[in-house]
């Protein structure tokens, strides 16, 4: 379908962009890569009066790697992450997960900030930000504020970003080089949204798993961790019985919705399988 009518501006500064958003109340929408917003407009699920293209604002597209972790500017594209010379060794989980995002041409435009703001529970970046306990930097008229991932996502396709605010950066905490990790995804087609994906990581001390993080993407209506499965594995060796305990706990604690893609029971089973594969991959790394 053709897009509804809207006005368009491509401001050259952050202050101008925020001013424009403010002036239009809730009726203006930021435009980043457009890889989610354009389909939303084509289906007329939204009819904003104005699109504020953030594509010409300087300073939003850097990838910074430091002692305090990885900082991704809101306008960093999927292709920038995948082609970065050192990110794969600095934060392997991030790069592995982003390799599952959409298709080649879409990865050339889609951005980190757009994905986090869109907050699709089946999208990889929100899942990684949530599982890794990232911090979002949000800019508004009064300056910037920091929001922890657990407070940032308020529901499917919902975040705490206000109508006159912009997400400017996401900060992922430092990633120890020896950390064990796995990312497993099941989708019907390469590049399609996940029916279920699991991000797993832990540190190993004296043969047992410490700080177990298990995040599930796509299978349930929200981005979520698996606290039961994490507890089942915490302080234990990641061997066959440990993995089996985590899988059983994961299947027991998720409550996937039933939809046209899959039944609830199928998705629950799939979550367990993804946990099993992600942990098996982690032990081998």
């Amino acid at each position: 379908m053709k897009l509804p009518a809207f006005d368009y501006a491509a401001p050259a500064t952050m202050a101008e962009a925020i001013e424009l958003l403010e002036r239009h109340g809730g009726d203006a929408r930021p435009l980043a890569g457009g890889q989610s917003l354009m389909p939303v407009l084509a289906f007329r699920l939204a009819q904003p009066s104005m699109l504020v293209d953030i594509g010409r604002i300087p300073g939003l597209d850097s990838i910074e790697i430091g002692e305090d972790g990885v900082r991704l500017g809101a306008r960093v594209r999927w292709c920038d992450i995948l082609e970065h010379p050192s990110l794969r060794s600095v934060h392997p989980l991030l790069v592995e997960a982003i390799g599952h995002v959409a298709h080649y041409p879409i990865r050339n435009r889609g951005t980190v900030g757009g994905s986090l703001a869109h907050a699709d529970p089946a999208a990889e970046m929100p899942g990684i930000a949530f599982t890794c306990e990232a911090t979002m930097v949000i800019a508004g008229r009064a300056g910037t504020r920091m929001v922890a991932a657990r407070d940032f996502f308020t529901g499917p396709l919902e975040t705490v970003i206000g109508p006159a605010e912009l997400l400017v950066e996401v900060r992922l905490p430092p990633w120890p080089a020896a950390r064990r990790w796995g990312f497993e995804e099941f989708a019907r087609q390469r590049g399609a949204f996940a029916l279920a994906a699991v991000a797993a990581f832990y540190d190993e001390r004296d043969g047992v798993a410490i700080g177990v993080h298990l995040g599930v993407i796509g299978a349930t209506g929200v981005v979520q961790r698996l606290p039961g499965a994490e507890a089942a594995l915490e302080g234990r060796p990641v061997d066959a019985p440990g993995i089996a305990a985590a899988v059983a706990a994961a299947r027991a604690e998720v409550d996937p919705p039933e939809d046209a893609e899959a039944s609830s029971a199928y998705r629950r089973s799939l979550v367990g399988t993804m946990v099993e594969r992600a942990l098996a991959a982690a032990t081998a790394r």
């Binding site: 368009y8 457009g34 354009m38 389909p39 594509g55 292709c79 041409p105 050339n108 435009r109």
Partner: peptide, 14 residues
């Protein structure tokens, strides 16, 4: 770079 021309506005091609 390859891109979807249906997911891009003409004004963005400036």
């Amino acid at each position: 770079r390859a891109m979807r021309s249906c997911l891009m506005l003409a004004v963005q091609a400036e």
